[in-house]
């Protein structure tokens, strides 16, 4: 099955949910289970199934999407400008999840 190489980063405290590691180089299936091109929405469920510390998953997702208060940057751009979870992943994309919820 074809895959897409991407880099996923976590910061602002989220790295604690992902084996305390900021950067993850991943090979993501090019298509989601229903055959559509892999998008951010699919990536998030992929991360939930494969990478996140299961018992603290709720700190990352809520109601099927990224928890409010977590910023997503697609190649350093606000995901709100890129179609949010409908953005289709491209090879070598860099996806950064930053939590704004932790201490200041």
């Amino acid at each position: 099955m074809a895959t897409i190489p991407i880099t996923v980063e976590f910061s602002g405290g989220l790295e604690l949910l992902f084996s305390n590691q900021r950067t993850h180089k991943l090979q993501i299936p090019a298509q989601d289970p229903s055959g559509n091109p892999a998008n951010i929405g699919f990536l998030v469920s992929y991360l939930c199934d494969n990478l996140v510390e299961a018992k603290r998953k709720d700190l990352f997702v809520m109601d099927g999407t990224v928890r409010n208060g977590i910023l997503v940057l697609i190649n350093d751009s606000d995901w709100e400008l890129e179609g949010e979870d409908r953005y289709e992943l491209q090879g070598a994309d860099n996806i950064l999840f930053v939590s704004t919820l932790h201490g200041g």
Binding site: S11, G12, G13, L16, L73, V98, S99, H102, G103
Partner: peptide
Amino acid sequence: AHYKQLDYFTTEC
């Protein structure tokens, strides 16, 4: 903080 690459610390008490 991200764009200016500021050095900050995050954790919960």
